[in-house]
Nucleic acid binder design. Structure first.
Lengths: 341, 341
DNA sequence: TAAAGTTATTAAACCGGTTTAAAGAATCGG
DNA sequence: CCGATTCTTTAAACCGGTTTAATAACTTTA
């Protein structure tokens, strides 16, 4: 700890021949302190290479200068979903602008999801919270809201007071399904995410509505519930082939699962898009790298991160938030996996 | 801020009829406090739902309970490299175990790389630092080391006192190149990363050495320096074709660039692996998803994150670190892009 | 020139814990 | 039964800043 051992405000004060209070005021640019004194203090600060200790400042102001991103999942899960990386990109960009720090809170294991919440709620290491969408049964969500922390929730939440940034999951799924129908597909499989998650439910609903609007009968045996992972998509594909279910298209609940399906189809000789059309959801980078390139519903993940962070910053700065519930739009990106053959 | 407005240690003390000191000692499990008193205090704590304010604790102990991961790049850059996600996964896993938090420090823009350092060095918001490998000309690296912060550097660094976790870049590149030579390839292009980065240099050296050991003449016009991005790989591929350089294999400095090359080759009708074999470096998830699947040098990125975090924890807990420089090994993973034709 | 008004500076309180040193109470040994 | 030990408890200092309220110094004004 060489030079920066610990130059405190008292050291500066002593050397400058003033009181600590004056140093503090001078640094804060308070109008009360005399011009000459101010310059002298600033010179001394420079000479001693003094920088105020953040902790001391925090102690007094009770503002931490950091926000927490709570994801009730393991690090393993989080980082295997490219989705989160883009969210983080958006958030950190905004936070950098405000000189705020980001704390990432995940759970050590599947079983202990409460830990991710406790770390933040109990220790008060953050001024506000961005909450990743979680199971609709997750009782911790309510705890967060009731804790009084400023919160922004990523996803749709029924409670009208909670600030949220939502995707148009329903609309996106509707578009995707309708696209497949327009291609002449009639037996469209939907591989859904876990149905205790609102986004999975909404996507399923969008799919159903599109079928219904086009007078195609919804068949529950064409819906397979999986967990959003690539491996799960692979399994689902395998299952479809093994059970010889009749289908001519797959709408997967996200890209990772779609890519898993793509892989098993390639291995088993199912031709995409000739035999089966595939559409995913998210538009992660991988979607444009696989072959055939994946048709998918693009959602502006980085923008979601940006909006969430900006909304939270607004609250923390005492500004009135114009839009309690923001909604970002999705867009169908047509690529090879559903090209007209 | 409903219930948890602010119940302090003094509130607990008052209600329990003891002094704040006793409460603090009781909570700390100090042997001095009488069993009965301890129980009584703990009950009161429970009754009031008291949890100690972290900031107060930090103030006294001068230990923050967080470490910083400094990446002198923009968030944009960081999150577009899957590489970092896996590093983060490893780190957060360890930190969770120690109840430490992770602070991510990136730069707001390319030009202001010092910002990523300043945020941590000046504000002392972390107890230690993990430093992502940076340009060998980055003068800030020295600042960090001289600051007295405990530091772990990711990559190879000449200074013998600095704790590091290194990959075997040289060895990995050697293996990759040799593999191509064994396939009978003689004109092997190397698309390198920025050559002011140690890892890019080391990979280039590994490539050269393998050529040399197999009596293949190194030709500098078969080396193209790019920036590790997928777009750059694409460009490099385009350049190779446009300039009609003669080559029968490509060893790319990382997977993203290899995937970029793959893409342009596919578009231009160059057959992989028949006409040209391709090998990448990193083994990111995308490598096993593209078609043909990419042969690459696997490096245990998560493990690097784990090692770095553990090393830092050891230092912070005052333990002697056995291995100042740890090295993880790489492994060649052979897939379709270099299959024997 | 004294009173009132300005301007500049600072002592002291405060944020919420932890820790030290000292005091007070209980127990022990001779 | 008294001095020495041991066990508990607590007052007070401390961490490093910010802020308030009071003081001091300097100008004006009457």
């Amino acid at each position: 700890m060489k030079e920066n051992r610990k130059v405190t405000i008292r050291d500066v004060a002593k050397l400058a021949g003033v009181s600590p209070a004056t140093v503090s005021l001078a640094l804060g640019g308070d109008a009360r302190v005399n011009e000459k004194t101010r310059i002298h203090v600033l010179e001394t600060v420079e000479k001693l290479q003094y920088t105020p200790n953040e902790i001391g400042r925090i102690m007094r102001s009770q503002k931490i200068g950091a926000i927490a991103f709570i994801i009730p999942n393991t690090s393993q899960h989080v980082f295997s979903h490219p989705y989160f990386a883009q969210l983080l990109e958006g958030m950190t960009e905004v936070l950098n602008r405000y000189s705020y720090n980001l704390l990432l809170s995940t759970t050590p294991s599947e079983a202990e999801e409460a830990v991710a919440y406790d770390k933040i709620l109990r220790n008060r290491r953050a001024d506000g919270i961005i909450l990743s969408s979680a199971s609709i049964n997750d009782r911790n969500l309510l705890r967060v809201v009731e804790s009084g922390f400023p919160v922004v929730y990523l996803g749709r939440w029924l409670h009208p007071d909670v600030l949220t940034v939502e995707r148009d999951d329903f609309g996106g799924a509707y578009q995707a399904t309708e696209h497949l129908i327009r291609l002449g597909r009639k037996r469209i499989v939907h591989i859904s995410g876990p149905l205790d998650h609102q986004e999975a439910l909404d996507r399923l609903e969008g799919y159903k509505k599109a079928l219904n609007d086009n007078e195609i009968l919804f068949k529950s045996n064409l819906v397979i519930e999986k967990d959003f992972s690539r491996a799960a998509g692979y399994e689902a594909g395998l299952q479809l082939l093994r059970e010889k279910r009749e289908f001519d298209a797959v709408f997967a609940g996200n890209d990772l699962m779609a890519i898993g399906v793509l892989k098993v189809f390639k291995e088993q000789g199912v031709k995409v898009p000739q035999d089966v059309s595939i559409v995913g959801f998210d538009d992660i980078e991988m979607a444009s790298v696989v072959s055939p390139m994946l048709t998918t519903v693009h959602q502006p993940m980085k923008q979601i991160g940006v909006l969430a962070a900006e909304k939270l910053m607004a609250v923390l700065n005492g500004q009135e938030v114009a839009e309690v519930q923001s909604k970002v739009t999705t867009e169908l990106v047509i690529r090879e996996s559903s090209e007209i053959n």
